[in-house]
Design a protein around this nucleic acid. Structure first.
Lengths: 195, 195, 195, 195
DNA sequence: AAATAATCGAGACGGTACGTCCTGTCTTTGG
DNA sequence: CCAAAGACAGGACGTACCGTCTCGATTATTT
C-alpha cells in the first residue's frame, strides 16, 4: 500500500543520507555496519534495502543524479541561448556538488543517468549545429572537458576557498571564451614564438 | 651495497608496475595476491616491499608524481611563453595519464609532490603578473580548473575514443582561449538575451 | 536464552569432538581449517568459539578433564577400601584414555582440573594415614607414579594390543602390590647380591 | 677427512644441545631461528645440518637414545639378578631424563632405538622364564608399565621436588614389589570388603 | 705463499597457517 | 508481518615461520 511504500522510501532515503555522510567522513574504508548504525538501523535492514554495497553506492549516485536531473530540467536548457544554458548548468551542477564529488571520489560511480547526460549532449549538439560553438571538437569531448572543469571548480570550493557563485562564474567564463565561435583571440602567438 | 639496492629498487618498480596494471584492469577489487602473482612474486614478498596495501598505493602515486615531475622539469616552463608552457603541460600530464587516473580513482591519492605543483603555480603567477592572463581569478582557482580540464581529457582518452595528442590540443586550445587577456569575445550576448 | 546457549554449547562440543578426531589422525600438523571443515563449520566460526588454537586445545583438555572428573565422582572413592578405589580409578581413567592421551601428546596439556586431582590426592592421603599404604613416599610422588603407570597402560592399549579391562587390572595389580603395607616380599635379595 | 668430519659432528652436536635447551625452555613454540641463534649459528647453517625441523628433532631423540643405550650397555643387565637390573635401569633412565622428557613431550618422538628396547625386553623375557617375575603379563605390557612408571618419576623430578636417586629408588621399589613372584600380599581384602 | 675450495652469516624468496575483519546470507526473537 | 540482533560461510588482510636459495666473506686446503 501507499503508506508502506512511503515509509520504505523514507527509510531508504535515510540510509542513503547517512551513507553519504559516513562515506564523506571516513572514505571508502567505512564498513556497512558503520553506515547502518549511522542511519539508526540494523545492518540486516540495510541489506534488505540494498542488495550490495555497490548497489547502495549506485542508489546514492542515483539520488545525486536525480537531484541533478531536476535542476537541469528546471534550467530549460533548450529555450535559452547557449551561453545562458552553460551558465545555468555550471551553477546547478556545482550547487549539487558535495554529493557529486563524494561519488566521483569512489571507484564505483558513473551512474549519471540519461536524464542528466542527454540534455547536455543535446545542448552541445545544438550549439555546434547553430554555429555558436566553434567546430573541431566532438560533443563527447566537449562534455568531458566541461565536466572536468566543473569537477575542478567543485574541488576548489571544497577547502571553502571560494563560494559556489564565484566558482560557477569562473567555469562559465572560461568555458565560453574557450569554445566560442567568435573571432579567435590571436593565440597564434604560441606558434609564432616557437618558429 | 649498490647492486643489492638496485635489484631491490627494480623489484619494487616491477611490483608497482604490475599493481598499476592489475588495478587499472580489475579496479580496487584486485587482491594483494593477484597483484603479487601478476608481478611474478609471492604475496609475502610484496609485503616485504610495502607494509600495506595503502603504502603500496601511495608508492604507486609517488612514482606517478615523480614521472610527472620529470616531464614538467624537462618542459622548461619558465623559459617559454605562457601559451607554449600550457601546451607542453597538457601534453606531458595527459601522457602520464594512465597511471595518474588509476590513482585519482582510488581513495588514497593526492600525493602530488611539490615538484609537480610548484612549477605550475609559478607559471600561473608569472602569467598573471606579465599580463598574458586575464585578471580576476586566483592562481589556485586556475590550477584547479586546469587540472579538472586535464582530468576530463584523460577520461576522454580512456575508452580510446581519441588520442593523447588530440586530447592535449583540445585542452590547450580551450584553456588558452578561456583565460587569455585578449579583447574578450562579445559574450555579453548572454546578458542581452536575458533582457 | 537457554535455547541459544544450548545450541552454542552443542556447536562448541561438536567442534571439540572433530578437533579431537582430526588431531588424533593428523597430529599437531592439522590446520585450523581442516578442523573447522571436519566440524562442518567455517574457519571464522571456529574462531568465534575459541580465540586461539591454544584455547581450543585447552577447551579440549577441559572436556577430557570434566569427563574424567565425572567418572571419579561416580567412583565414590572415599566410601570404599583403598584397594577397590585404586581399581576403580584405573578402570575409569584408562577408559577415558583416548582423549586423555591425545592431549598428553600435545605441548599444551596439563589442565587436569582440581576435581580430578584432589580426590586422588585425598585418597592417597587417607591410605597413608590409615596404614593401608606403606610409608616412605609422599602422596605427590605416588600420584606421579600412579599416573605414569596409567599412561603406560593407555599406551599399551593404543595399538589395540590389549583391552581396557586387562590394562586396568594390570595397573591395579602392580600398583597395589607395589605400595601395600603388607610384609614386604624379600626383595632384600637385591641388597644382598650387591654386597 | 677425519678432522672435517669431527668438526662437522661437533657442530651438529652443539646445535642439538642448544635445541634441547631452547625447546625445554620455550616448548614447541621455539622457532628455528631461536634455536640457531642459541647455538651461535646462522639459520641457514642449521638447515645445512638438518633438512627439517622434524629431522632435527629426531636427531635429538637419537642422541638421547644413544646416551641411554650406552648406559644400558654399561649396566650389564644380563649378568645381574633381575632386581638389581631393574634398579640400574631406573637409575640410568631417570638420570638421562631431562632430554628424554623433552622428546616425550613433543609429538615427534618414538625413536627409542632397538639398542634401548631390546636389552630391556630380553631382561623381562628372562625374568619371566626363570620365575623371578610373576606370570600373567606379557613382556610388552610390563615394558609399557615400567616405562610409564619411569616417566612419572621423571616428571616428579621436574619441579625439583625430589632428587634422581629418590625417584629411581621409588620406581625400583614399587615395580619390584608389584611384579615379584613372591607370595602375593593378601590384597583379596578388596573383594572381602566389598561384601 | 698463492690459488682454490669449502663453509659460513646474512637475508631474500615462495608458500602456508594464523588470527582479524568485513561482506552478504540466513535464522531467531520481539514488537 | 517486519525490524533488530546476531550467527554463519567465505575470503582478504597483515604477520610469522618454514624450507630453499643466492650472495659475499672467511676460512681451510691444495699446489
Amino acid at each position: 500500500m501507499g503508506k508502506g511504500e512511503a515509509l520504505r522510501d523514507r527509510t531508504a532515503e535515510a540510509i542513503i543520507e547517512s551513507a553519504a555522510a559516513v562515506l564523506a567522513e571516513r572514505g571508502d574504508a567505512a564498513s556497512m555496519e558503520e553506515i547502518a548504525n549511522a542511519a539508526g538501523v540494523g545492518r540486516a535492514t540495510l541489506y534488505r534495502y540494498f542488495a550490495n554495497r555497490t548497489e547502495m553506492l549506485s542508489a546514492m549516485a542515483d539520488v545525486g543524479a536525480r537531484e541533478l536531473a531536476d535542476r537541469i530540467r528546471e534550467a530549460d536548457l533548450q529555450t535559452v541561448p547557449f551561453e545562458e544554458a552553460i551558465a545555468r548548468l555550471a551553477r546547478g551542477i556545482i550547487a549539487t556538488g558535495s554529493k557529486y564529488i563524494a561519488l566521483g571520489t569512489d571507484g564505483t560511480r558513473r551512474t549519471d543517468s540519461a536524464e542528466v547526460i542527454e540534455p547536455i549532449r543535446a545542448l552541445f549538439g545544438r550549439a555546434i549545429a547553430d554555429g555558436s560553438l566553434r567546430r573541431g571538437h566532438s560533443p563527447d569531448l566537449l562534455m568531458s572537458l566541461f565536466s572536468g572543469l566543473i569537477r575542478g571548480a567543485i574541488e576548489a570550493t571544497r577547502g571553502h576557498r571560494l563560494g559556489i557563485e564565484e566558482a560557477a562564474s569562473a567555469v562559465t567564463d572560461l568555458f565560453l571564451r574557450g569554445v566560442s565561435a567568435e573571432p579567435s583571440p590571436p593565440r597564434a602567438k604560441q606558434e609564432r614564438s616557437a618558429r
